[in-house]
Design a protein around this nucleic acid. Structure first.
Length: 434
RNA sequence: UCCUCGGUAGCUCAAUGGGUAGAGCAUCCGGCUGUUAACCGGAGGGUUGCAGGUUCGAGUCCUGCCCGAGGAGCCA
């Protein structure tokens, strides 16, 4: 007997096949019942008729409990009344495990609260919405990698354990490390990317990053994934063009390959279809002007708060790029703007619809003396950066790159209001289980 | 860390001014040959987050604690 997936059903109309999955829901109407089966690739309604099945088979299905595992044999039929467009006329069914009614599956097809759902995240990911979001996430990751691989970038992943004082901030998770004392979970692969870029030209790293901030908002996780491309012989403008081209490319891919999932999420697809190059470009000063006009209390020289980011992004129907920030609100390694030395060649990209900063990056300092000066100004110990300083001694060149936060990007594409739904097992301030 | 809100059946919620804790869903039993979060009838299911206080009487008022959510700060 041929085993197919639900996603393949359209190619097997009229054939008798097997589907291996789980009972998503069951509707009963006397001598006809509708077991709804999911198999990971999709959801399909089956039809079992009492008079056409052996009694034990019909009875085992009629009394089946939600999320019991089963293998159904039946004939595929196109059916307009069925949610997916195809139905399976059941000929036989083998129950692999029957969920006992004494301990039924906790997530019912009715509303639940967020606390309950997050406590049952290991089961919640079976639900239609969560399933759609995670499939879109996979498409986003795949598209990013395809894009970078196709544009001459080499994947060189960077370490997750990093030494003390790596970036001179206090927001790192500490980990005991043998006799060395402590190491820290990385909050960015960027410094290492600068080393690999000098070895490979165009590189990227893709992995989890960690922030020990007590942030409790819809845009924050303590563990999140970033893709960080870095390019030798590159400028701020190169970074801006790469970022907008990458973002547009990924969105096109999702619209092509994951349209059904976007529909499941009831995403306003026209808003994604409107995303195209070029993205609007503002300087920090122009952004401040817009914010003041819109009533923000932000003071020149401050970084944008979440509310400011939302106010700014409302002005545009596509991501907006803001560059030339005051040097003192950015990290030590940003290259100054030659025309305004108190500004740096850094850029943030804010997603539309209030999803906040999805990209941060820019051009790095390539001059040895300037880097040493900046380290001193920021109070960072030179000895912790010895290898990083080396990069400016041995064939230094202008270089630039950025980091793109996967969860915020996926949240925007999916139109979900919290990044916790865009990763299988979110790690947040008050939540580390399951 | 701060502000706000919340914790009552497995789940989502209700319970007049302090007076016998209730509904829907889920589960079980029964009915129904096209259901779409099916529907109809019935049954079982409670230490009201924890500890203390006020009161004849507390889910309800007071104090402390625990847990969570929304937001702020923070987020090179």
């Amino acid at each position: 007997m041929k085993r197919i997936t639900i996603a393949e059903a359209a190619q097997h109309v009229g054939e008798t096949v097997q589907i291996a999955g789980w009972l998503y829901n069951l509707r009963r109407s006397g001598k006809i019942i509708f077991p709804i089966v999911r198999d990971g690739t999709g959801i399909m309604q089956c039809v079992a008729i009492k008079t056409e099945l052996p009694e034990p088979v019909f009875e085992s299905l009629r009394r089946l409990t939600q999320e019991s595992s089963l293998i159904v044999t039946g004939t595929v039929r196109a059916e307009q009344r069925a949610p997916g467009g195809y139905e399976l006329d059941v000929k036989d069914a083998q129950i692999i495990q029957r969920v006992p009614e004494s301990d039924p599956y906790p997530i019912t097809p009715k509303p639940h609260g967020i606390d309950f759902l997050l406590d049952h995240r290991h089961l919640w990911i079976r639900s239609r919405r969560q399933h759609a979001i995670l499939r879109i996430r996979h498409q986003v990751v795949r598209s990013i990698r395809n894009y970078l691989d196709d544009h001459g970038f080499t994947l060189v992943d960077t370490p997750i354990f990093t030494p003390a004082a790596c970036e001179g901030t206090t927001t790192l998770f500490e980990v005991p490390y043998f006799d060395e004392g402590k190491v820290y979970l990385t909050q960015s692969g960027q410094l290492y990317n600068e080393a690999t870029a000098m070895a490979f030209g165009k590189v990227y790293c893709f992995g989890p990053t960690f922030r020990a901030e007590r942030s409790k908002t819809r845009r924050h996780l303590t563990e999140f994934w970033m893709v960080e491309p870095e390019m030798a012989y590159a400028t701020l403008e190169d970074v801006k063009q790469l970022a907008e081209d990458l973002i547009v490319s990924v969105i096109r891919d999702v619209l092509t390959h994951r349209r059904q999932e976007l529909e499941t999420l009831e995403r306003d697809i026209s808003k994604l279809e409107a995303i195209d190059k070029p993205f609007p470009r503002l300087t920090y000063d122009e952004a401040i002007e817009i914010l003041h006009r819109k009533g923000s209390q932000i003071v020149w020289g401050d970084d944008f708060g979440g509310t400011d980011e939302t106010l700014l992004s409302e002005e545009f129907d596509r991501p907006v790029m803001v560059d030339r920030f005051p040097a003192k609100i950015k990290a030590f390694y940003f290259q100054p703007d030659p025309e305004q030395p108190d500004r740096v060649l850094g850029v943030d990209i804010l997603a539309p619809e209030g999803y906040g900063e999805i990209v941060g990056g820019g051009q790095r300092i390539h001059d040895l003396d300037l880097l040493l000066k900046r380290l001193d100004e920021y109070g960072l110990p030179r000895e912790a950066f010895d290898w990083y300083i080396d990069l400016r001694k041995y064939g230094t060149v202008p270089h630039a790159g950025f980091g793109l936060g996967i969860e915020r990007f996926v949240a925007w594409i999916c139109g979900v209001d919290h990044v916790r739904e865009t990763i299988a097992f979110p790690r947040m301030l008050y939540r580390t289980r399951p």
